[in-house]
């Protein structure tokens, strides 16, 4: 059942957007998002979880992946709503919203499909930094692949009004900007074997972009 839904999302069947009642559709998307997101999160938390004897980390990571996606989505939405209204696309906003939500679910499906790779990586390489990099790579892969899903869902909208394409780019920018910081804030996802298991890390409250800048200038300076 869940797999059929996931398949429908990946193939961007309009059924996902239009079939059944609103509540049914939302429930489907939410279910897919939670189940698949938690799958990847759980796998992600395995690093120190099973091998370091910290089972709790698995639960934390599992909860955090859907959280990451949904909070980012929620924070970016108000602005997108206002801009859509300004460009005269309010009447399509319901469809836009469903397309975006379906894409969120799509990201988790792709992530879940990548999770076996993560396990193999964990098994073959013990380096913690490498684990972080590998997971970042997986997230990047999933986000980029999900663009395909998003494009498919958006195609009918863009056909009716090309302005949708521009605003889609705006959405990706805003979502990316908030999402990167959100990923940084919700650390640890993987859980270093050397630090205690926590939901949030005390020192996690930092600015991802400034950290990145520091790392880059550190490399070249």
């Amino acid at each position: 059942m869940l797999l059929t839904w996931a398949d429908d999302i990946l193939r961007a069947k309009m059924l996902v957007l239009d079939g059944g009642s609103t509540r049914q559709r939302l429930a489907t998307l939410a279910a897919v998002l939670c189940v698949f997101g938690m799958t990847y999160g759980g796998v992600m938390g395995c690093y120190a979880g099973i091998f370091g004897g910290k089972l709790l980390q698995i639960v934390y990571s599992a909860v955090k992946v859907p959280m990451l996606l949904m909070i980012t989505f929620g924070l970016s939405l108000p602005f997108f709503y206002v801009v859509n209204s300004l460009y005269g696309l309010r009447d399509d906003f319901g469809k836009v919203l469903r397309a975006l939500l379906a894409t969120q679910a799509g990201v988790t499906v792709i992530l879940a499909a990548l999770s076996p790779l993560t396990i193999v990586w964990y098994l073959s390489c013990e380096n913690y930094r490498a684990a972080i990099l590998f997971n970042a790579l997986m997230f990047a892969t999933a986000s980029i692949s999900a663009q395909l899903v998003l494009k498919r869902f958006y195609r009918p909208l863009i056909e009716t009004n090309p302005m949708h394409l521009r605003l889609l780019r705006l959405w990706i920018t805003i979502y990316g900007f908030v999402g990167i910081q959100m990923g940084w804030t919700l650390r640890p996802f993987i859980g270093s074997p050397n630090s205690p298991t926590q939901f949030f890390r005390d020192e996690a409250w930092g600015n991802a972009y400034l950290q990145l800048y520091r790392i880059i200038t550190g490399l070249f300076g």
């Binding site: 602005f79 206002v82 805003i174 908030v178 940084w184 804030t185 409250w205 930092g206």
Partner: peptide, 18 residues
């Protein structure tokens, strides 16, 4: 527009001390 960007500003206020 500014009010709709408010949540993002609050989020960054939470995260950054810069």
């Amino acid at each position: 527009v500014v009010a709709s960007l408010g949540p993002i500003v609050v989020f960054f206020s939470l995260c950054t001390s810069s």
